[in-house]
Design a protein around this nucleic acid. Sequence first.
RNA 1: GGCGGCGUAGCCAAGUGGCCAAGGCAGUGGUCUGCAAAACCAUUAUUCAUCGGUUCGACUCCGAUCGCCGCCUCCA
Length: 490
Amino acid sequence: MTIQIHNTLSGKKEALKTLEPGHVKLYVCGITSYDYCHIGHARSALAFDMIVRYLKYRGYKVTFVRNFTDIDDKIIARAKEQNTSSEELANRFINEFYTDMDKLGVDRPDIEPRATDHIKEMTDIISELIDKGLAYQAGNDVYYVVDSFPEYGKLSKRNIDDMKAGARISVNEQKNNPMDFVLWKGSKPGEPTWDSPWGPGRPGWHIECSAMSRKYLGETFDIHGGGQDLIFPHHENEIAQSEGANGKPFVNSWIHHGFVTIRHEKMSKSLGNFLTIRDILAHYHPEILRFFIFSTHYRNPLDFSETAMRDATAGLERLYECVASVDLLDSKAADKNAVSTLSAKDIKKLAELETRFQEAMDNDFNTAQAQGIFFDTVKTINRNQRKITDTSPAKDIQILKDATAVLKKLAAIMGILREDAQGFLSSRRDEMVADGDIDEKAIEMLIAERIQCRRDKNWSRSDEIRDELLAKNIELKDGPDGTTWSVKNN
RNA sequence: GGCGGCGUAGCCAAGUGGCCAAGGCAGUGGUCUGCAAAACCAUUAUUCAUCGGUUCGACUCCGAUCGCCGCCUCCA
């Protein structure tokens, strides 16, 4: 079975074929560093983090490049506002980006080039394009001749004539044709500049990725990724630049992920529905955010809401509860002559976990389906786990433990179930207690009192204590090994 | 206006030309429990926006209609 990936260029799922056997070369457009990252950036980072981990899990070597756009109109404008330099502002938000990524547990790409470190590579490509007659200087700027690239529009599935008819293309006196896009911008006073054959200036946005991907991955590489909003014009322009300059195919497969919406609308500052990664992480454990993001396929829109996060919390806790209870099975004694209580059907199902997971993930990284398989596995484990007693054979316990180990290994590809289960559950509990109006000592004392009441069969006081705690969102669970408690999600 | 995508149970969400349309959350009944909670078992879409067409057969393919979203300007 091969990995199938939806390719934006062809509009179809295609079997992954790498130029170099067993080696995937991947380029993803990173952030423009002028502000804190929002949940949409988180989705992008997490989607490609998952994809890279899965490819590695499937035995591929992956060279993953993700750039930083550290020079751009927005950076210049923001730096001016804050009375600082573009460089300083960009560096500051790159650091903030790393802070967020580290909290989310996102692995670093192999190479993280910054645009401003690659000006030479960019001016080289621009010169090549001019030499080939695909670009021209106008005033202090350089533009790409869109009409010279007949395949323009092949990624975004549009044609130039339709676009020309649209009224939203900015008119620029310098351009020969309104569709032409800028490769090099002559500098205005006070802006950061670099020398070039066309005078002092700075690169356009699109040329960065053509230059940096060529430097690190070559003229043709396997996969290029980004958000769906980058399809046009950014990626369309990259194709025109790179294929124009190199005279060969740029990228074999394009992966574009969907947006995070809030109240079913794309986030934007003007709508006031803008949530940063740190806003979210202030309220939710990073694995909850990951679980939520992978609850739908990466290309679908994903609507953020409190309800959705609560569902994700419940789901992730369900997985952790299962792992935690299997972890505890260790303490049980095992009798050699014991009869297995596991059903053959369930043993088979557990054995098939990894295959089922691969089938889901091979199908264009279907994490939603994979999560369904996790739950199915948990149900199977729980069903059998509760039948385990002191006299169960060691083999039964081992089968459940093995299945849990596989579950954790596979979940780690999505970056979940990476913590110690008991630790995760109790630390979540502690956090929630800290938010509430009762402390742990008081809870323990009430529980101790209640245990005595129950011994005395003083049910009314016992229930009173339970209700009292429930009113403060503390739920008691009386099990064979005593009373445990948790904080109710709501 | 052009282009792309989506519409599956109360909510979220997989899936597919033909066995019972995954799974989660919520709900209901039961087991367990002093009673609960958790867990487990059972149950919850004769139906996949609507209407046509292709087919022996479609939720899945094609067309139209309605609704929603995105891109066409910076954007993950």
